[in-house]
Amino acid sequence: MISDRVVGRLREAAAWPELDARYEITGVAGSGGMGTVYVARDHVLERDVAVKVLDLADRHGSRAARLRREAHILAKLDHPGIVPVHDAGQLEDGRAFYVMKLVRGRRFDDLIRDRAPLTIRLDAFSRILDAVAFAHAHGVVHRDLKPENVMVGAYREVYVMDWGVAQDGPDRDAAIVGTPGFMAPEQEQAGQTVDGRADIFALGALLSHVVDDAPPALKAIAEKAGQSDAARRYQSVEAMAADVTRFRNHEPVGAYDESAFERVVRLYRRYELPILLLLAYIVMRFVLLVWRGI
């Protein structure tokens, strides 16, 4: 009778991808619905990389086609917020794989859970918006944006990961894909047309997670992005990003009707330094006048 530990090692042995001598598998980074991401050493370029490998070569080749499609999408989307792909191919046993940059860092949901300062969370969110806007400009809709699919590196670099169910061009398969809570209503029905506004819905849900302790203007941006009716959402990621930037610059946010008091507070925050300098000047002048009067 073999122990559970050995059973685990035998499963690992059977799943082990036999790559060519260039890549040496050194560990497992994670596993998902159809494959496993291994950490490997690239002996040619002397660096660590991540290798995504199918667990099984399926009869019809649909999984392999999906993995290859993902690699092609990543290759097409050359952007600092999207993980670069270095190599792709097929193992001797028929399993497809691709090699990509090994991203070391924390998942975005960990960053949110640990209550990182709002400025850091918003900075990361803005970078996500940049990456998704870039993808949309190239005709790619991610379709599964959620905090677990975003990595934040040690230098606050942000990577939007897992493009396995991304839609490249018009939706032909009409498959229902996504994650409940982040899926736009149109994604939940087979046959519905899905466009970039589905990602905007997910970005709204993501922003709600990022800013649950934030001012109403920011919550209004999340609410507008997360409207059930796609026509009532932001119509582009750029429009949403512009509102987020306006919020960060203490400018009026398009999605929010502020009160007079909120306007005064916002203007104070925007011009805090000149206002303080002006007040200091007035106080000084007043003190001088009083002193001379004595």
Partner: peptide, 13 residues
């Protein structure tokens, strides 16, 4: 077979 194989060979962290 495909379902069982995928379950068996899906490497775990």
């Amino acid at each position: 077979w495909e379902a069982e194989a995928a379950k068996l060979l899906g490497a775990k962290e």
